[in-house]
Design a binder for these strands. Structure first.
Lengths: 197, 197, 197, 197
DNA sequence: AATGAATGAGCGTTCATTCAT
DNA sequence: AATGAATGAACGCTCATTCAT
């Protein structure tokens, strides 16, 4: 039951927004009563917190698996992370959009817990960049923290517009983004870097 | 007065969210009464609509100026667009964050109007890419629509985290992102593109 | 201007009801502003009071004319009163419907003033009946007060349903009602009176 | 509780009018809170609708019982209908006055439903007249539809002024009205009909 | 004679939450 | 494990009215 409530809530929160979704809406969709909701959750915020927490904890876990693989290069790890995020849209898109949009509705204490995990996810990318620069896979003098933000921008933004059932496949999109991030879009990218500075 | 209400609202919407900000909050902050609010706005949604509309219309206008400049290369135009968006964070960051987060609270009719302008902004970038590919500035076989989404991801996401008063300047950040987008981050980007496919 | 406000108000009050019609509605319909309204009227209630007062005072005045005519029989006077009320629907129907429906919105003091005139109108009919009984035109032992209420019922109710532009003319309707009131509807009315008691 | 709310509301609506009675007024009178009201009713209009619907449905039901009685003449049926309406004032007067006065506050859809039942009630009287004319109980050439309106005028208007606790009993008033309707008020009603035309 | 900005009290309604059962 | 009745605080919004100009 608890799981059913969570799943249904994600759907409703995505469609109508957290504030616009009442407990009544949620329990109506499941044909139970409000009492049932409060048997499993102490508050509406707790429900949102659980949604957020599971979403980000799961993501972090899968990121760690990628990082821990000693057989891949840093480029390959980055590629796998980008694919992870893009492929996740199909199943977790709703959760993610709720996550990005409804953060505001968490109490300060809860927001802080979530923020720590988000930061950890980002810092793992940052470290990946830094390590890749160190071993020569990535360009020298890359500002790892900003690059991490840039990469996250590309992937996170996809949750706003990408339709996994549309014309372009997850595989194709991931490849496009990986290429763009690794090689850039300039015809002769090697020389451009000096021109632009 | 109307302008004061709009400005104050943007601040409050950004800090607390649209739903969490009551008309009472807004008018209290300005030491007027609710009647005053409804003298200038017919509804809370109309206020949000005006905020959204002014934000996106202004951005589109400035994008058009860049596009219209016949003396720049496409690369230069792209660079100027990215700088436009990053430099805008300082003054328009609050508006933009409200814009991205609170779209949900617009009626279908209003959302459609805003969506059209957003799409126009994106399509302008897409066209820029396509034109740059045509004249050889950008890589052949670039999928312009997806690349446009990628670039917008990098810049739009910045509104979520970038602090214009922090350690890194708008100028520096813009440069980092322009380089990343044009040249990629791989040490030897030319060869990577084949490896990755 | 004052008259235009009154006229427009009657129309709006009839269509939407007194409470549901705002001062704004009234002035909008006349393309003036609220200030104008309050230049001529001290309150919304005063406007309603004037509508009521003019309506009932005018009616009373015309009733007095009928009563004062020494050349008519009482039957003829009653007939003329009924015609007065039915023919009035075309021009004063809106006023009358507002009058009947919105009495509640008058202050006690104002309601009392109106009530006195209404009572006078009714008492005039009552006296007419009594006088007609005395001189043998009307049945003996008629309870004049109740008969007056009965007659007023027939005519006043017409304001709720009669459409002067419909199939039946004011003339025809008046005749039907006068006949009904004077002669009843039973096939052999003389004998029925005893049967029914 | 729902019934208590309805009863209390009828009283308040009659005394102060629908618009002038707030939900707060209603729940205060019952020492509950607004939440309680909205637990039982979805809107103020729904409450009004239920009052209206029960009132008119009940009346129609009782009218049908009278019509269905095969042992009465049409005169007797008419008499019983008039008594039904007059005797109803004591218990249902408040409901009826609310019914007549506050129809405006129903939505179009709801008003239509009520109107259908009202029309049915009136048409039943019209048919009664027509049938009575056919079998010779009522005068030839009576215009049944207008006569029905006339009769309804007499009875419905009573709800505006008749005090069941006043000097005249329901029984006496009913008799007066039945006589007036059947026999008219003219001293020699048989001959008057020609005079008046 | 008329305006437009502002007020403030109140209204219908919503909703997260509680609690006895 | 779940219900249903009830709460109470808040919210978006309306509107008659005031008043300086």
């Amino acid at each position: 039951m608890k799981e059913k409530i969570t799943e249904q809530s994600v759907l409703l929160f995505e469609k109508k927004g957290f504030s616009q979704t009442s407990i009544q809406d949620i329990v109506d969709a499941l044909n139970v009563t409000k009492g049932t909701f409060y048997y499993y959750f102490s508050s509406k915020e707790q429900l949102l917190m659980e949604i957020h927490f599971h979403y980000i904890a799961d993501l972090l876990q899968r990121q760690r698996t990628i990082i821990a693989d000693d057989t891949s290069t840093y480029k390959e790890k980055l590629r796998r992370m980008i694919r992870l995020l893009i492929f996740d849209i199909r199943d977790k898109g709703a959760s993610a959009r709720v996550f990005f949009r409804e953060m505001k509705h968490l109490s300060d204490a809860n927001a802080e817990k979530i923020k720590q995990k988000r930061d950890a996810f980002r810092c793992n990318i940052e470290k990946l960049i830094r390590d890749g620069v160190s071993n020569g896979e990535f360009s020298k003098e890359l500002q790892a923290d900003m690059i991490a933000f840039g990469i996250l921008g590309v992937t996170n933004w996809s949750y706003q517009w990408y339709d996994p059932n549309g014309k372009i496949s997850e595989d194709a999109l991931s490849t496009i983004f990986v290429n763009m991030i690794l090689n850039g879009i300039a015809a002769d990218s090697i020389h451009n870097s000096t021109v632009m500075n």
